[in-house]
Design a protein around this nucleic acid. Structure first.
Lengths: 275, 275
DNA sequence: TGAATAGTGTCTGTGAGACAATATTAT
DNA sequence: ATAATATTGTCTCACAGACACTATTCA
C-alpha cells in the first residue's frame, strides 16, 4: 500500500517524474459569417460562412494552412485559457464564445513528437473584428458539399488561394451510429486539422437547432432575414420563411428600429431575447 | 524563419524538450442497467442504472471512490487505447461501446501535479459481465434527483455504502445556453469525478433520443417493456407505452421467441435492427 | 411602375400525448 | 378468478411543411 500517513506528507514526497509526459495544444476553429457584396442594388448581400486559418512558415507542414493554436503552458494555464490567449494573439478578439470540441490524439498526428490537441470552436460576429490580425492569418469562405450522406467535400477560399479537401464518415461500431472521420483527399491543410474543421462545422450544425449559439455570430440588431440566412448557411439548406419565423419567434424581440434603403420593403430590426 | 531545407531535416534536429510537458489520464464512466429482484412473483424486475467506481487505497484521495482510469502511455497509446486497457484490467470487458466525453483540465484537479484527463463513457449490457473484476471496484446503483432545473443531486449505492453529492449547472455565457457544472457538496468522490459522472449521465440522456446507443446496454433479445424501462431510467421519467412503441418501432424487429413465466401475458422478444 | 424583399394567413399531414380497450398468462 | 403486464386502437392537439397572398420600398 502506502507508507505515508497523510495526504500532505504524501504530496511532499511525490515524484512526478515516474510518469511519461507529453505536450498538449489548444487549436481553435474560429467561425464567422461574412457578407458578399451584390452588384444589383436591390439584392441583399449573400452571406458566407468563413473560418480563420494561419499559414505555417516553419516545419512541420511548412507552407500549409492550419487552425490557430498553440502549446499549452502546463504550469499555469487551462486549455481554455490557452485557446483564449491564442485567439487574442491572432485576432485581438476577447470575450467571444468558446466551446470545447474534441480531443485529438493520434500518436503520429504531429511528426515532431507526441502532441495531444484539444480543439475548441469559437463563434464571432464579423463586425466585431478589427484589422489587427496576425499577417499570416486569413479568413476563408467555406463551401460545404455533401456528395452523399457519408462523403463531405469542403472548399475554402480566401480570395487568393482555394483549398479543397474531402473526408468520409466511418461507422465505428456495429451496434450504434457512432462514427469518426477519415481524410480522403487533402493537400493543403496541416496536421489533422481537416478533421477538426469538419467535426466542428458538424457540431455547429447540430447545436444551432437546440441552442441559441447563433446569436454569438450576430450583431446586436439584425433582421429576421439576416438571421435566417445564417441558419441556412450553417444548416446548408433553404428554410421556409413562415416556419423559420415561428421557430425563432420567442428567441428574439422586435425593436422600433428599421433597416431601410434596400430598394424594397424595409425590415424590422430584432434583438436576441434571453428567456 | 527556419534554417532547414526539408521536413525530414527539420525533424531530425527537432528538440522536443523546448516545451513544457504534462501527464494525461483516461477516465471511464462505465454505465450499465441492472435488475432489482421483486418479491411478488407477478411483478417485473425494476431496473436501475449503475456505474462502476473504484476505491482508492493510496494518496491522493485515499479511501475515496473514483472512476476507473489510468495514466496515458504517451509513447505508444492513444487515449482510447488507454481507456480500453483500463477497462479490460478492471472488468475483463472488451469490445464495448466507448465514446469520448470531455477533457477536464483544471490546473489543480490533481494535487500531485498537472494532469489533464480525457473522460470516456462506456456502455455495457450487465449480462456480459463475468465476475472478474478488480477487488477494489464496485457497482453503484444511481439515483438521480433534480431539485430544480439547475441543481442535481446524485446518490450512489453499492449495497454497503451510500454516497451522495450535489452539483449545480452554471451558465457560462451571457449570449447562449452554454453551461458547466459546479460541485456544491461532495465528500466521497475523488478528483473532479463527480462532475464527470453528471456530465456523462447528461450526455447519455441526450444521446439516447437521437441515436441507437441504448442497444449497447441491452442483451441480444429483449422485450419492449424492458427496453422502455431502460429509456425511462436514463431519461428519468415515465413514458407512455403506445408512444414509446411507435418511436422505436423501426429500430427493432420482432422474433418468434417469447418471454413467459411472469404470471401475466407473455411478451414477444425483439432484437435490434440496423437500418 | 416593377423588381425585390418583408411579413402574414391558412391549409394539410404527421406525429406525440392521452386514455381506453383488449389479450394472455401463473397462481 | 385475479393480479399483473402486453399490446393495440383511436382521438385530439400542436406544429412543421407548403403555398399563396399582401405590404413596402427606391431607382
Amino acid at each position: 500500500m502506502n507508507q505515508y500517513n497523510s495526504e500532505e506528507e504524501f504530496l511532499k514526497n511525490y515524484d512526478s517524474s515516474a510518469f511519461e509526459k507529453l505536450s498538449m495544444t489548444a487549436d481553435i476553429l474560429l467561425v464567422s459569417v461574412s457578407d458578399q457584396e451584390q452588384s444589383n442594388y436591390r439584392k441583399t448581400n449573400k452571406k458566407m460562412m468563413s473560418i480563420l486559418l494561419v499559414k505555417r512558415h516553419d516545419y512541420p507542414y511548412k507552407d500549409k494552412w492550419c487552425l490557430p493554436g498553440g502549446f499549452l503552458n502546463a504550469s499555469n494555464e487551462t486549455l481554455e485559457d490557452c485557446a483564449k490567449r491564442v485567439l487574442k494573439q491572432e485576432t485581438n478578439l476577447e470575450n467571444i464564445y468558446l466551446e470545447q470540441l474534441y480531443t485529438f490524439d493520434d500518436i503520429k498526428r504531429d511528426p515532431r513528437m507526441r502532441v495531444v490537441s484539444t480543439s475548441y470552436i469559437a463563434l464571432v460576429d464579423k463586425n466585431k473584428l478589427t484589422n489587427l490580425i496576425n499577417e499570416n492569418a486569413s479568413w476563408f469562405d467555406v463551401v460545404l458539399y455533401e456528395e452523399n450522406k457519408n462523403s463531405i467535400s469542403i472548399t475554402l477560399d480566401n480570395g487568393t488561394s482555394s483549398i479543397t479537401f474531402k473526408v468520409k464518415k466511418i461507422l465505428r461500431e456495429k451496434t450504434t451510429d457512432r462514427y469518426s472521420f477519415e481524410v480522403v483527399a487533402n493537400a493543403d491543410i496541416a496536421f489533422d486539422h481537416s478533421i477538426v474543421i469538419v467535426s466542428g462545422l458538424e457540431r455547429l450544425r447540430n447545436k444551432i437547432s437546440y441552442t441559441d449559439v447563433v446569436f454569438n455570430m450576430m450583431p446586436e440588431y439584425f433582421t429576421l432575414g439576416e438571421l435566417q440566412q445564417v441558419y441556412e448557411i450553417i444548416l446548408n439548406k433553404k428554410l421556409l420563411d413562415p416556419a423559420f419565423r415561428r421557430i425563432i419567434a420567442d428567441k428574439v424581440e422586435k425593436t422600433n428600429k428599421m433597416r431601410t434603403g434596400g430598394g424594397h420593403r424595409p425590415s424590422v430590426l430584432f434583438r436576441y431575447k434571453r428567456k
